[in-house]
């Protein structure tokens, strides 16, 4: 197959990224810097959370079965927030799947390999994308309609209080690199097309796709950030950080699943099962 040149692959990935992800860094920054006519509703304690649930429930849980919504109201706040996180994750996994199909060569891979790449890649990609919705004080939620403070998330009871803080710490380091959406599109594609996931059958084909993305990423970063020549190696280091973040996250979720009365969405069960 014909190898697309650097600029066209970067452009293609950027367009697919803007098409498939409902939130992106440029949009999120508008909300986070207060440049919208309707600023996000700030959730910083139980009262504001309850108020937000009334206001945002249709946005947060637009696709949720009505039975789930009614039982949700009777559950404790930590369990409700855990469920919100799950639904947001499911939506992002769906978006990531569509984005992956737009990566040249991905859709032609063996279907089992596509599944494996998504299984291991989606949470790493999700946490890289989540950083766009974070600043040091909190996290943008519900398509920019709400902002949950970092302190409130830390104040939840254990183990739920341990859920988001490592993601904030990663996000602060990651956001310091000042990537834009065109950089992130290639970075997410590189996360997904990774030749060393367990159980892949056609490693060499995936490595060829990965090499081509990494090559384009390096050249794109040099032209998009000419003053930061170390950006590419710094970004490669983040791949290892993301893997560690996902390993710890998977352990925490499995722990919550065992010890708490919190069921896990079937799609997320598929991803976490026998992961690491």
């Amino acid at each position: 197959s014909q190898q697309p040149d650097t600029k066209s692959l970067a452009k293609q990935m950027h367009e697919a990224y803007l098409k498939h992800f409902h939130m992106n860094k440029a949009k999120a920054r508008v909300f986070l810097t207060g440049k919208t006519s309707t600023p996000p509703f700030v959730i910083h304690d139980m009262d504001t959370l309850q108020h937000a649930e009334q206001k945002l429930i249709t946005q947060l849980l637009g696709n949720m079965a009505s039975g789930d919504v009614s039982t949700l109201r009777e559950r404790e706040v930590e369990a409700r927030l855990f469920l919100f996180c799950q639904y947001a994750s499911v939506a992002t996994v769906t978006e990531l799947t569509e984005f992956a199909k737009a990566v040249p060569g991905f859709a032609a891979l063996d279907l089992n390999d596509q599944v494996t790449l998504l299984k291991y890649g989606v949470y790493e990609a999700l946490f890289a994308l989540l950083a766009s919705c974070m600043n040091k004080d909190g996290l943008l939620v519900a398509h920019g309609g709400g902002f949950i403070t970092r302190e409130f998330l830390k104040s939840l009871r254990k183990p739920f209080s341990d859920m988001m803080e490592p993601k904030f710490q990663f996000a602060m380091r990651f956001n310091a690199l000042e990537l834009d959406d065109s950089d992130l599109a290639l970075f997410v594609a590189a996360i997904i097309c990774c030749g060393d996931r367990p159980g892949l059958s056609d490693v060499s084909q995936i490595e060829r796709i990965q090499e081509s993305i990494i090559h384009v990423l390096r050249l794109h970063l040099l032209s998009n950030h000419p003053d930061n020549t170390l950006l590419f190696p710094k970004l490669l280091q983040k791949l290892a950080d993301l893997r560690q973040l996902v390993t710890e996250h998977a352990e925490l979720v499995q722990d919550i699943n065992k010890t708490e009365d919190a069921s896990l969405h079937p799609l997320l069960q598929e991803i976490y099962r026998d992961m690491y």
Binding site: E98, N112, E270, R273
Partner: peptide
């Protein structure tokens, strides 16, 4: 792999099919 990842398979094979939430 297919048996254990039915929803991922479905998402990969059918772009118009939303995840059954």
């Amino acid at each position: 792999l297919k048996e254990k990842h039915k929803i991922l398979h479905r998402l990969l094979q059918n772009s118009s099919s939303p995840v059954d939430l």
